[in-house]
Each structure stands twice: as C-alpha cells, then as structure tokens.
Write a protein that binds this DNA or RNA. Structure first.
Lengths: 268, 268
DNA sequence: TTGCTCCTCACGTCACGTGAGGTGGC
DNA sequence: TTGCTCCTCACGTCACGTGAGGTGGC
C-alpha cells in the first residue's frame, strides 16, 4: 500500500490530482485512515487510474469521464464526440497556421503595420431594406443609397447600424438596417440577412481600392482553407452622406481618407 | 462616436471584451465621460482593434499583444513563436486522434474494458543499480533479481520505488532504484536512467503475455505517429519475491494473476 | 415615466499548481 | 528530535461570460 505521494509518482501524476479525483468521486483510495485522513492506494488500482488518464488524454472533461466510470454513459458515444471535437480543433489550428503563414510570408512588409488584418468571426442576422442595383440602371451607388436611406428615413424604422451592400456573383444590392420590417415597394424590398461566419477585413480610405481589397480577402480565405459561400457583404462604417438624409451621425466624415469600410466574405 | 455596446456590435466582440481591453491598456476608447464613466469609440479605431483581434486569433496571449502594441516586442518573433506553438498543438491533436482511432477501431471490444490503456507521459530520471543479463548467462530473471536486490539491500540504499528492466534491442539489464549511488562491482553497475517521455501501458497478470503486450504498445506508438527511441523499460509494480530480500512490502502479492507491470516505450 | 444602456464589482469557468499553516509517522 | 510527508483550505491561472445592484440618457 502506498500513500498519495508515492502512488502519484508511480502513476506519473501529482498528489494533488489524486486528491482532486478522490474529492470528485472519480478515483478513490482503497483505504483512508480515519484519524489522520491519510489516503492509501494499491498498485492493483493502477489499471483503473490508467483508464481515466487515457480518457483524459483524449481531451475528455473529468465530468464526462466520471459519468462514464460511474456507468452512466456510452463509451463509444464519448469517444465519437471527442473525435469530432478534436477534428474541429485541428481544422481551427490549420486555419490559424495558414493565416500566420500569409502574415509572415508577406515579405518586406512589417506584419504589424500591414493593413490587411483578417479576422474570422460570426455575423449576427440582420433585418434590412434592400435595393437591387439592377433595378437602378444608370444611377451611381450614391444616388441609390440616397433613395434607399430617404425611403427608410420616411418609414421611421432606421436601425442604428451601418448600411452596406450584399453581392453574390454579379448581383449587387444595397441595404440599410431596420428596427422592424417595412412593407416592400416595387423597387425596395425587405430582407433578413442570414447569420453566418465570415472572414472580415477593415478597409481604410477612398473606394477606388475596395475591389483590390476584396481580391486580397478572397485570396486569404482560400489560402486559409476556408470555403467561401459566394456571398460578400460590404459595410460602410465611416463615409460621406448628405446630411438631410438624417443618416445616423456617427458614421459621417468629410474626408475620403477617413472612410472606413468592412468587407465580409461569408464562409461555411 | 459609439458607446461600448454599439461599437462592440460593430467590431464583432462583446462589450465586456472592450471594457477589459480598456482596463488592460490594450485598446482604449477615444473619449471617456468624466462624470458618467461612459466610454466612447470611433470607427476610425477599428483597424487598431482589428490588429489586436487578428493577433489574438493566432492564439497569442493578451499580455504578448499588449507588449507588442506598446512597442516593446518584435512582431516577427511573436509570430514565429506562435507558429511553433501552433505546430506543436497540431502534433498533439494528431497524436490524440490517432490514439482515439486505435481505441475505436478495436472492433468488438468494449473500448472501456480493453486492458490496453496507453498514456503518454514524462518519466522522471532515476538512479539505479543494474545487472546486465548478458553477465548472468544460464540464470533466469528471478535469480538475477535476487542477486541484485540482495546486493542493494546490503548497501542499505534501496530506494522505495519498483524494480524493473531496461532493454535496448537485445540488450537487457535489470535494475533496482537507489536513494544514493553505490560503488560498482564486476557484475553490478550504478546508472542514471535518463528522464524522458514514454508511451506507457499497464499489464495485469502473469508474465507469459508481456511480450505480446510490448508488441501492442509498439504498434500503438507507431500508429499514433510517435518515434520510439528504441529503449523500453518494464516496471514490476506488484510481483512475487522471496521475503528474505526485504523488498519493500507494498509490491508483494502471492497470486500471479495479481501481478501488475508497467511497460514504458521511450519516445522522442 | 419607461425601457434600454451604461457603470463597477464579483463570481464562475476548467483542471489543476502552488503556497500557508498545521499535523502524523519513522 | 529532525526531516519528510501528509492533511485541508485558499488563491492564482486565462480570457472572458454572466449576473447583481445601481445609475444615466432619450
């Protein structure tokens, strides 16, 4: 029989781990001295402890392992779950590595001052009014925005988030967020932009270089092993607009160099 | 200008994250109202926040990022460190996945009652007295152990850990742990077993099946993508021995079915 | 005035590591 | 008796999430 310390050395864990597992009811000493509280273990218990450590080694939580050891769980199901989780983690790490490679590989540029900081993040769903640019031929984007913002302003349901565009292939629609749905007209529609995950990039300055930025974002996502859904959203976070539209004030700037735009490349 | 909540939504993080980053000095609002304590942010700050989030996305700690942003660190060095760490994590995950596959793949057997629970763990260094079995031709292992244990007992320096064997190819030596080194004799040597990492497996019962178990452990390690160093240690955790040797009592059992043995396959 | 947001604590997460302060066993 | 180990708290780790209890702004 062994005390915690020597049994711990035998098993290759710390004494603290054995004490915790005892407290958790996960793995108990064969005998505990009533008066001193000393724990005593036998080598015959090693296979049982090994089972627990082997499961822990797969990344399972102690709670899961305890359920299993207590007979309350299906071992195959646990291992299956662990497998899925590990595969997910692996994909995440691969993505991060690819992203790092791109960053480091951008030779000559200081990796910290390069403007293309791509972040993959979940996008919340959003209710918006849209105007398909195909329905506004011959008019520039600004005129279309003026029309849409004016309409939404009149409905009194402008949400306090930034406007943008959604594109899918050659289809381009502009959108303005709403607090509640509004009725559609012949030109203006009401849609719900689905929630999703996107590789996102912030672009600064005038719009001439937006197309290039979109290309770089696509290239980044491809290199990072992400699958694009084909949808790209553009959010105008700081831009110029006619004041009479009563576009929420925070977004407005005078100088095109201060424009801030976010590109969102939807991925699976 | 935006309050925490709306700026957080814009950036795709929680308000709590912005407050923490403010407290850490990592990313601060452009303006804080003195009387209310309200934080205000501008979209022009988004690129800076994006840089931080992009670095966080590589798995860097907030402390590392703060040092960098404060100008105290080399970005290339940080990214290089992150890359190494991510690659290490990836290898670990691959190992765990391979281990899981072996476990799940052992069709027909309940993955929980299979006796081969392999755990990869670090091994501490150990000072031991050894007897090379090549020097004891014609004698069986038990006789050699008796000789070695008797010698060590007489030296008064028996460590309270289990005895075992070390093998490297066809070289086999038995060993007994010491509290302090002892002088070598013509047959008995004093060595230091190096610390290392090992795939370990507990074996239960008589020794006839130990060879098979060693094979299974090797197969496991190969499948898990581990590189064996060629050294294999065997620890006798519960075994039979003549009482007169005064081998530490806890290890002794009468019945061969109660023998407990650990196999340690050293890996890089 | 009613919601909504903001504020600052403070605790919970997870599986331990690392003391602090005190006791038991050879 | 001296070390060594054991005991039980209790706090720290990391980057937040989630209240609690109270206040500000339209």
């Amino acid at each position: 029989m062994f005390t915690v310390g020597s049994f711990a050395r035998l098993a290759g864990v710390s004494a603290k781990v054995l004490r915790s597992y005892d407290a958790l009811g996960l793995f108990r000493p064969i005998w505990v001295d009533r008066s001193s509280g000393y724990r005593y273990y036998s080598p015959a218990q090693l296979p049982a402890l090994r089972r627990i450590l082997a499961l822990r080694d797969t990344g399972a939580s102690l709670a899961e392992i305890r359920d299993l050891v207590a007979g309350g769980g299906d071992p195959r199901a646990l291992l299956g779950r662990r497998r899925e989780k590990l595969e997910l983690e692996r994909r995440e790490i691969d993505r991060r590595l690819a992203a790092l490679d791109i960053r480091i590989g951008a030779a000559g540029t200081d990796p910290l001052t390069g403007d293309d900081d791509v972040v993959v993040r979940p996008l919340p769903a959003e209710v918006v009014a849209t105007l398909d640019l195909a329905l506004a031929p011959g008019r520039d984007g600004e005129a279309a925005f003026n029309e849409l913002e004016a309409h939404v302003r009149d409905s009194g349901r402008r949400g306090s988030r930034p406007p943008g565009t959604v594109r899918r292939g050659s289809d381009v629609a502009i959108f303005v967020p709403l607090v509640r749905p509004i009725p559609a007209t012949d030109r203006i529609d009401c849609r719900r932009l689905a929630a999703g995950r996107a590789a996102t990039m912030i672009h600064r300055g005038p719009y001439e270089t937006l197309g290039d930025a979109r290309q770089r974002l696509s290239a980044w996502a491809r290199a990072a092993g992400l699958t694009a859904t084909g949808e790209v959203r553009t959010l105008y976070l700081q831009f110029g607009a006619d004041a009479y539209l009563r576009v929420p004030r925070p977004w407005l700037v005078e100088d095109a160099r201060d424009f801030v735009t976010e590109l969102q490349l939807l991925v699976d």
